[in-house]
Design a protein around this nucleic acid. Structure first.
Lengths: 138, 138
DNA sequence: CCTTGACCTAGAGTTATGTCTAGCTCCTAG
DNA sequence: CTAGGAGCTAGACATAACTCTAGGTCAAGG
């Protein structure tokens, strides 16, 4: 295949984004792309670099726990065209807040977990059994 | 019901842990509790405070992304009895590592997301459209 | 020309983690 | 003694987010 300027096949996009070709088709069906992906004469998807960039941002959203439904709401606003940037911003800010809260919660969880690890380390080092579970204890 | 020393009903444990009674029965079926929960003469589960504490720690594990299957592996080791504390420790350390990595990844994601938020804020303030998506742009 | 591999659609299947229902028992308060 | 609420089991159902299959088309290299 002659590589034409910025055009990409689904396989190339999969490579560039880490998503499977299955996932890319799924995302499209689910309305998660900012535009309808055009097709070649043979019916194949023809992506461009901006699609890849959007997908990379989607990966950030997904990795940070944004449900696909929220991404879809954002996409729908973008597709409606200019004028609703406040609403788009609200979705983004809300997600940013979620991520900050999630990080804080994880740091709390980590403390508890690390304490348990420390307890086991002490136990393994000393051969004691205080603070670890022994079913015969109960 | 006469509250006997440290005995708890499933409903009380649900309240204490935030888990639903359904989830508590599910966890038991899945082998996620450190011991077989004894039953009253009428066949009802009789929990104690140590069960609650384990479930609270499980909540930390789950909230920080540990799959139930990993919790079950840990539980199986505990139920095997003393002697495998090194393996238990390995599971805990591995999860601690995951949590640290997850926090780091989330901080990366947050940076990207915050940059997008900042872009939208600038756009909304200035009425420009640079860096935000406009499908008619493409 | 022929093979190989990438691509297509529609739809079924999977995994993880619960949640809910049906039909039953048991306990306690009025 | 009866009604309501909490519990019980077994198993069906739900949800998100993919993933895979079947059955085809198409295109480039040898």
């Amino acid at each position: 295949m002659e590589p034409v300027d910025g055009e990409l096949t689904i396989g190339e996009v999969a490579l560039a984004t880490g998503l499977s070709v299955h996932a890319l088709r799924f995302f499209e069906r689910e309305g998660l792309l900012l535009r309808p992906i055009p097709r070649s004469s043979a019916g194949r998807r023809v992506y461009d670099q901006a699609d890849v960039e959007w997908l990379l941002l989607c990966n950030r959203f997904r990795a940070s726990g944004m449900p696909l439904a929220a991404i879809r709401r954002f996409v729908d606003l973008v597709r409606e065209g200019p004028g609703n940037e406040q609403q788009r911003l609200a979705i983004l800010r809300e997600h940013e807040r979620h991520v900050r809260e999630k990080i804080a919660a994880l740091r709390d969880d980590l403390e508890v977990i690390h304490a348990k690890v420390a307890t086991y380390e002490r136990h393994v080092r000393d051969g004691t059994a205080s603070g670890v579970w022994d079913p015969s204890d109960r």
